[in-house]
Design a protein around this nucleic acid. Sequence first.
DNA 1: GTAAAATCTGACATCAGTGTCAGGTTCAAG
DNA 2: CTTGAACCTGACACTGATGTCAGATTTTAC
Lengths: 120, 120
Amino acid sequence: MRIGELARRTGVSERSLRYYEQQGLLVSDRSPGGQREYAERAVDRVILIQELFAAGLHSKKIAELLPCMRDPDGGPNERATPQLVTDLTAERDRIDRLIADLSTSRAVLDDVITTAAREL
Amino acid sequence: MRIGELARRTGVSERSLRYYEQQGLLVSDRSPGGQREYAERAVDRVILIQELFAAGLHSKKIAELLPCMRDPDGGPNERATPQLVTDLTAERDRIDRLIADLSTSRAVLDDVITTAAREL
DNA sequence: GTAAAATCTGACATCAGTGTCAGGTTCAAG
DNA sequence: CTTGAACCTGACACTGATGTCAGATTTTAC
């Protein structure tokens, strides 16, 4: 599929898809004329990238992480370096703390919302 | 307490504390010489502000939200406007989706970490 | 072949919280 | 009074993913 369809199917802008490629997060074949052609699995890949971005990882870290993921269809995957494992562990801990913070904030918001609803 | 102590006790930079005040999130008395003097409760307030920032709320929204919180010591609190309730509900939903995304990302990281550990 | 739609590259703008620096003032201790 | 630490305001820089625009090229439909 071409970039427009991938953008539509993932909800990610074409601009961002090109940026992902530039950062080494996403690969594409090129048509004879130079236009990007994506495999079907690019959809899941883009969604995953978005989730990792949402989790606060930077593109460089994602670029290191992706090749080390277990591939469901058994593609050749790289081995995570000790440094990467250290980094990812720190990220995981940060995410755990973030989830805790988010739960607190959610409760605060919920309380204000509920209180306001009660006062109607 | 003065700004240095508040910064130390909350882990938030003095720069940020002044910024919070400028955005109407934090109040302070001033010494005769013009230096900020904070009440004890400022500590909790700052921590809460940080959590709300971490949850992705912008300062303007936090400034509207804070006066509508239920005050544990029964201070006079404002009533949330219908518009604010709508906004906060959207934020709450966004936070819920974010937590779900974070859990996915956490699992991905954990898988890479665990796989790497198994391969040692 | 021609027109319209889609894509290309490259460049610049944006957001909002935070870092940092400069130059001046206030506070606390000797 | 003096000295050094703490604080003040104001200004500028940064980050990094994304928006947006311009001008050129490719693809698709008729």
